[in-house]
Nucleic acid binder design. Structure first.
Lengths: 336, 336
DNA sequence: CTGAAAGCGCTTACAG
DNA sequence: CTGAAAGCGCTTACAG
């Protein structure tokens, strides 16, 4: 079928006795062109299965039809489940616009790989997989004037953001627990430099305030990133007769569950457990774990749409906030 | 610092009073060029931080400096941990050769996204994340004459492969268990269409043969991909006084562990458990789980090196087999 | 409505 | 050793 070299716009022009300009216009739809000429070209293209060389097109238009996904190097397993779903969403949208997705690994703020992509002129825009305080990747991108959108929230209103409404979600889950009469609710969170850690914390605080209840600060633990640390905190909480432990994400929740198991503490009989974030990690747990739910596929799709608009110079919302769900399971059930 | 437009090879030529050809040669190192001229150009480039436009370079050389990672759409969590480490390895090597990595999602044998990348002339080669029987992605790639290498093994000697030695690894772990006097060892495996499932099975069979022991076929279960099915099998195995359950991968092992927990069967007191594959999923389990260990980062790096060589037309090994480790933990300990 | 020509930023025979 | 010119496969003012 293939006759050696790939078909070019020139081959089509020759075959049809028109100019390359005309072929180009028929394909792009830009510029005036006769309806019948256009049809002839398009028919020929369909019949002969011509596909344009996007590299050449890109060079002529100074664009690449590539976007980069900036992937933190410290991603853990449950982040990966997020990444995976997000990627599926991003990839689907990108694909539908003939865009491709490259991944740039950013190990602890080392943006060199991303910089190379950009200085090599290989991408048109970037998606940041998460927001952090003092984000030097974002700073670099702003400085280099590369279009980008962040998944997550940021104080910097110059950064285009797409996020789920974590604050409202965490408020709602906490409220539900409070309304059930549970009072001593501990909150264990992860890396403080991640914006979302504070967003979730704020949701938790909102719930207490809303109910007119005082928060016991000593029940809040942040920067809990190791199993060892989580173990110690759980011991402390058990000694203090804590009624419920909320993990800000699944890996924390997993630490907590393992520790409780080791100590032979029953969930939900002896203590309740919930998570501010769900992944398949907890889905099949025994008992099943109450958690928040986010449509990560849609998050990815919306983010990609936003970036593509941004690249095309279309107006975009500075900040889009997507919804959430609360999934009540066995781990917070009242045992009578 | 930036004076609007990006610096080109022409700017350098003008500044130095030489031709673009000379600049190009100094950069690429190809063609005869005077040592001092070369130095002058290189110095200028360093000083002014010039970076070539890889798109233009690619167009001139009919290459893209991109490779694609073909990612199955049915990836589960533990696959993602594999993917992540692999990606880090691939990305590191690719990056060091100024190559970038695109991801192509392949939902259940639908290669359309990959085809688009290829017909759009956006990539120079492909890495297949796993091998399956009757692989239509590989078939397409062979047909399209796109350089590619598969992570995993295949009967098709035309396919360049890089893999860990799963067969020897599984043989060794099984042997160790047999030598400890454990006889009724059940094996629960996943998707049969994945080549690695059979490779692992063969390792298990090798161990029995080596010891001159008969295999009880009824202890071997394949295509176990749901929690429900795994639960039923575990019940069956418990009724049959099985002494040890090997999961072919971590997600299966996880199903098994959850079921045993539900049934209040103690590991390793009542039954032993091992996994033919490790990920962080099992690492922190209580008790810790005996498993095989593979250096996935190195696997990714070696695969990428191979693909890059293949693209450059250098000779490559048709099949590279990397090592493994056996990690004995609490879950197979003898309880006296 | 259509085309010739210049251009995107490189590389590479071909001459000298 | 160095350079002018053509080419990679598109797009896009500019003319007609």
């Amino acid at each position: 079928m293939d006759s050696g070299r790939n078909m070019t716009i020139g081959d089509i022009a020759d075959a049809l006795g028109v100019s390359k300009t005309t072929v180009s216009r028929a394909i792009s739809g830009k510029g005036r062109i006769g309806e019948d000429t256009k049809r002839r070209v398009l028919d020929y293209i369909n019949e002969h299965n011509y596909r344009p060389n996007m590299i050449a097109k890109g060079l002529a238009q100074s664009r690449t039809f590539n976007i980069a996904l900036a992937l933190p190097g410290d991603y853990n397993l449950e982040d990966m489940s997020f990444f995976q779903k997000c990627l599926m969403g991003i990839s689907e949208i990108a694909n539908s616009f003939e865009y491709d997705v490259m991944v740039a690994v950013i190990p602890s703020n080392d943006t060199s790989q991303l910089e190379r992509m950009i200085t090599n002129r290989k991408i048109d825009g970037v998606i940041l997989m998460r927001t952090v305080f003092q984000d030097n990747t974002a700073a670099y991108l702003k400085d280099a004037e590369v279009p980008f959108v962040a998944i997550g929230s940021s104080d910097d209103r110059k950064i285009v953001q797409v996020d789920n409404d974590h604050r409202a979600a965490c408020r709602e889950l906490t409220s539900i627990l409070l309304m059930r009469g549970i009072r001593k609710i501990a909150l264990i969170g992860g890396n403080q430099s991640h914006v979302v850690t504070h967003t979730r914390l704020n949701g938790y605080l909102d719930a207490y305030k809303e109910m007119g209840l005082a928060v016991d600060d000593s029940m809040i633990y942040l920067d809990v990133e190791s199993c060892v640390l989580a173990d110690k905190i759980v011991e402390e909480l058990l000694a203090r007769k804590c009624e419920c432990i909320i993990g800000m994400d699944d890996s924390i929740c997993n630490y907590v569950l393992n520790k409780l198991k080791k100590e032979k503490i029953m969930v939900p009989q002896d203590i309740k457990v919930a998570s501010f974030y769900n992944s398949s990690l907890l889905e099949n747990n025994v008992p099943s774990i109450t958690s928040l739910e986010f449509d990560v596929l849609e998050l990815g799709m919306e983010t990609c749409r936003t970036l593509l608009d941004l690249i095309d110079g279309k107006p975009v919302k500075a900040r889009a906030l997507l919804g959430y769900g609360v999934s009540l399971k066995e781990s917070t059930q009242k045992m009578s």
